[in-house]
Design a binder for these strands. Structure first.
Length: 404
DNA sequence: ATCGGAACCTCTCAAAAGGC
DNA sequence: GCCTTTTGAGAGGTTCCGAT
C-alpha cells in the first residue's frame, strides 16, 4: 500500500460542456458527435482536436466514461475533461481511474441523476508518479482488450448461427429451396395465453416479457404468481414450448420468442417442472412437422420479423399480435432430417456461446480484481498477472469452428 | 445548468368474444 | 347462462430528449 498524492479533478483539467445538438442537426458524414452513450451521429463542426475524456452527466447513464477520438463534437449532457495537465496525468490512467471509482458520491438531482460542475469540483484523484500511471493503464488496457475480444467472439458465433440458417434452408424471402409452406396455425396443437393473475410473493415461478430476450430465456428476476391447480396444469411449461411476446409498446419487441429448454432451466438452478408464464406471452405447442428451435429462428429471421410486424396491430400506441395473426404466418417446412441436423449444430454453438459467456464473466471478475489492486497500489512488478493474462489469451485463441 | 414532459417499457385489468 | 379465452386499454414506472 502506497501513499499516493491526491488532487482534485479540477486541478488537473477543466471540465466543459457545449450546447446540445438536436437530432435534425446530425448528418450522415462529418465529424463524429459524442453524446451520452458514445457516437450518436455526425456534424460539420468539431469542438475537439485532441482525444478527451467524456463523462455522461445526466440521466440513467450518468457517470459513463467515453474517450472521444480526435476532431469530434461533444454535445451537451456529457462533460469533456479539457486542458489535461499531461505533465502530471496520463489520460489512459485517468480514464481507468474514473471508471473504477465511479461518480456515485457526487451525483445529485431529485428527478434525474445529475453530475454538475459544482459537484465535480469535489472529486478527488489518486495520482501515482507518471511511469506508474502508465504501467497501470497499460495493464488494464490489455485486460480490457481481452474482454473486448471475448465479446466479439460471442457476437461472431451469433452471426454464425444466422448464416448456418440461411445456408441450410436458403433464403426465406424467395424460398429458394422450394420448401412446402404452411400457415403456422396448421403446425401447432394450440396457442395458449398465459395467466393474468398478479405476481406476488407466493405461487409458481412465472416467465414474463423481460425473460424472453434475444431468442433465449433468461431466469433473472423471476416473479411468482398464484394460480389454482387447473390453471397450473393448463399453463405448465414443458420441453420445446415456444413463448412469443404478444404485446409491447415497441413494435420491434412484439414477436420476440424463445424456447423452453429444461436443461437451461436446471442450469439456472430451478426446478424445470413448475414454470408457468404471463398473459402477455403466447405459448405455442407444436405438432411434429417443425421443431420449435427451427421455428424460433425462422421467426427471428428477417422474413419472420417482416411477417410478424405486418400482422401486428397498433392501438393506443401499443402493438399487439393475436393468435389469428400468428396463425396466418407462412412457415417454410424443411425436411425433418435437415431440421435435425440444423438443431444439432445450433446446440453445439449455443454450448460454445455459454462457455464463452462464462469466460467473459471470469474476465470481468479478473478485470475488477485487477482494478482493485491497481488503485490500491498493490500491483507489484513481478506479479503473476502476466501469467494469468497469458492463460486467458490462450483460451481466447481457441477457434470455435474447429470444434463443430 | 435545469427541468418538463415525451417516449418507452412492463404489467395488470376488465370487457368482449367464444364454447359448451 | 356460465366459464374460459382472447383482446385492447391504460396505469405506473423508467429513460431520454431537447427547450429554456
Amino acid at each position: 500500500m502506497k501513499a499516493w498524492e491526491q488532487v482534485f479533478l479540477t486541478e488537473i483539467c477543466r471540465p466543459k460542456q457545449w450546447p446540445t445538438i438536436t437530432q435534425e442537426q446530425l448528418t450522415e458524414i462529418g465529424y463524429p458527435v459524442y453524446g451520452a452513450n458514445g457516437v450518436i451521429g455526425y456534424f460539420d463542426r468539431y469542438n475537439h482536436e485532441e482525444p478527451t475524456i467524456l463523462i455522461t452527466c445526466r440521466g440513467a447513464t450518468c457517470g459513463t466514461i467515453n474517450v472521444c477520438e480526435s476532431k469530434s463534437y461533444v454535445t451537451g449532457n456529457a462533460m469533456a475533461l479539457d486542458n489535461l495537465d499531461t505533465l502530471k496525468v496520463n489520460q489512459d490512467y485517468l480514464a481507468h481511474f474514473l471508471k473504477h471509482k465511479g461518480f456515485k458520491y457526487i451525483i445529485t438531482g431529485a428527478a434525474q441523476p445529475q453530475i454538475t460542475l459544482q459537484s465535480l469540483g469535489k472529486y478527488k484523484i489518486d495520482l501515482p508518479p507518471l511511469p506508474e500511471q502508465k504501467r497501470i493503464a497499460d495493464i488494464l488496457d490489455r485486460a480490457d482488450e481481452l474482454r473486448t475480444k471475448r465479446r466479439q467472439a460471442i457476437e461472431h458465433l451469433n452471426e454464425l448461427k444466422k448464416s448456418i440458417f440461411l445456408d441450410m434452408f436458403g433464403d426465406p424471402v424467395t424460398n429458394s429451396k422450394g420448401w412446402v409452406i404452411k400457415p403456422l396455425e396448421q403446425l401447432v396443437h394450440e396457442f395458449r395465453y398465459g395467466t393474468s393473475n398478479k405476481s406476488g410473493e407466493k405461487g409458481y415461478p412465472t416467465l414474463r416479457i423481460p425473460n424472453v430476450f434475444q431468442g433465449e430465456l433468461n431466469f433473472e428476476e423471476i416473479k411468482n404468481v398464484l394460480v389454482d391447480d387447473s390453471e397450473f396444469h393448463r399453463l405448465k411449461l414443458q420441453e420445446g414450448d415456444l413463448l412469443i411476446v404478444r404485446t409491447n409498446g415497441n413494435q420491434n419487441y412484439v414477436g420476440r420468442c424463445a424456447v423452453f429448454e429444461t436443461c437451461r432451466v436446471i442450469e439456472s438452478g430451478y426446478d424445470d417442472n413448475i414454470f408457468i408464464y404471463a398473459s402477455y406471452l403466447i405459448r405455442l405447442r407444436l405438432r411434429n412437422e417443425v421443431n420449435s428451435i427451427y421455428l424460433r429462428d425462422f421467426l427471428l429471421s428477417q422474413e419472420g420479423r417482416r411477417q410478424l410486424l405486418s400482422k401486428s396491430k397498433t392501438s393506443a400506441g401499443q402493438y399487439n399480435i393475436n393468435t389469428q395473426g400468428l396463425g396466418s404466418i407462412n412457415i417454410p417446412i424443411p425436411c425433418p432430417n435437415l431440421q435435425k441436423k440444423y438443431i444439432n449444430r445450433i446446440v453445439v454453438i449455443s454450448k460454445q456461446i455459454k462457455i464463452y459467456q462464462l469466460f467473459f464473466e471470469q474476465l470481468n471478475n479478473l478485470f475488477s480484481s485487477l482494478q482493485d489492486r491497481a488503485f490500491k497500489g498493490e500491483l507489484s512488478k513481478n506479479d503473476s498477472l502476466e501469467s494469468i493474462l497469458k492463460n486467458h489469451a490462450k483460451n481466447q485463441n481457441k477457434q470455435p469452428e474447429s470444434q463443430l
